[in-house]
Design a protein around this nucleic acid. Structure first.
Lengths: 186, 186
DNA sequence: GCCTCAATAGTCCGAAACATACCATCCGAT
DNA sequence: ATCGGATGGTATGTTTCGGACTATTGAGGC
């Protein structure tokens, strides 16, 4: 412990997840991410091996190994880590948010909206469906934070779908019934 | 020219801007970014010096210098660059988008929504106002792409503001008649 | 008992992006 | 004359990205 490091976004995700899980291996973190924040904040799984190690060096988490089997590394928050997490939660952030949407970028640069819409609709409808499923699952037992976040996410998706719907079906030749054969096979 | 590189998001932004401007210095690009795509896709200005150079090495843009004054570097698309840009525009991307919103992250991890809302409202209202101003300015003369992108951006902001409004003024005492002041006037 | 396949679990690395600090020049107003 | 602000640019250490690559484990078929 004791290299001074600065806590990055990734750090706070790891700290946050550990505070929820109590104790976790990087692989657990990976699962958690993809089930939760990964929906809107993606990161490569390699980070989830590198970052806890970094946090351990700086004394925010402890690293122990299983004594048997794969001898996986188990991480959990130290007092310092818990404090860091909590004070992060308490700090108000006017921080700008980033919406990195390739489709939006292409739209801006003049791509054909109708064409874009086709793919975007599929993507976002699927995501919306996922969210709605999640919503049902978590409605009862989950704590407030995740539910609120999911709520905002769902609204975003719903709106995005609406937007693209408006641009989907009337490119220039408006009339006939397009058979919307968006079969959802994987 | 002729190192093979792969075109990143940053590359495509630079190519796109150059295709709009015809010719530009990194500083020009910097201005353009902050006036346009920078609203939703931020990047450090140093990239706008590094990236064109990289693209020049690979033959996507030409680099010339002013012969007088500051002898700034001027970039413009080569045929290859223009092609790359256009084919990028044409490719359909189911690519997932990322919403990197610290506030959302904190919300997820259990931060106090009421408190968060305060700051978020300020930020997003301001952004919304910006967008609405931009909207008026660009309504007439601007081409379709930017207008559509702006439209989507504006809706996002509007919705985000709505969301935080719901969490701003009634922290835990729920009951009374909420005046649903979600006026949708532009 | 052996094999295979999927899920689990982890390492590694080059390239890109990030954030910021720093430097230099020009020009108009005091 | 000089000061400050806009202009214009470089440099650098850290983080992130993205994916390739390698094991191990356990369940089910044969």
């Amino acid at each position: 412990m004791s290299d001074e490091i600065e806590l990055t976004h990734t750090s706070h995700i790891v700290l946050g997840l550990l505070s929820m899980a109590g104790e976790a291996t990087p692989y657990d973190l990976k699962q958690m991410v993809s089930a939760t924040v990964g929906h809107f904040w993606s990161l490569p799984h390699s980070q989830l091996y590198a970052e806890p190690a970094r946090l351990a060096r700086a004394g925010y988490v402890t690293e122990t190994r299983e004594t048997e089997g794969r001898r996986r590394k188990l991480y959990s928050l130290t007092t310092r880590g818990r404090q860091a997490h909590e004070s992060w939660l308490g700090v108000l952030t006017p921080e700008p948010y980033m919406l990195r949407d390739l489709a939006l970028l292409k739209l801006f640069f003049g791509a054909d909206a109708h064409q874009l819409a086709e793919v975007q609709l599929e993507t976002h409808r699927q995501k919306l469906a996922e969210y709605e499923t999640l919503m049902e699952q978590t409605a009862a037992y989950s704590s407030a934070g995740p539910r609120l976040a999911l709520d905002l996410g769902t609204r975003h998706e719903r709106q995005t779908v609406e937007f693209w719907e408006e641009h989907a079906s009337q490119p220039k030749m408006a009339p006939a019934s397009r058979s919307p054969n968006t079969s959802r096979g994987s």
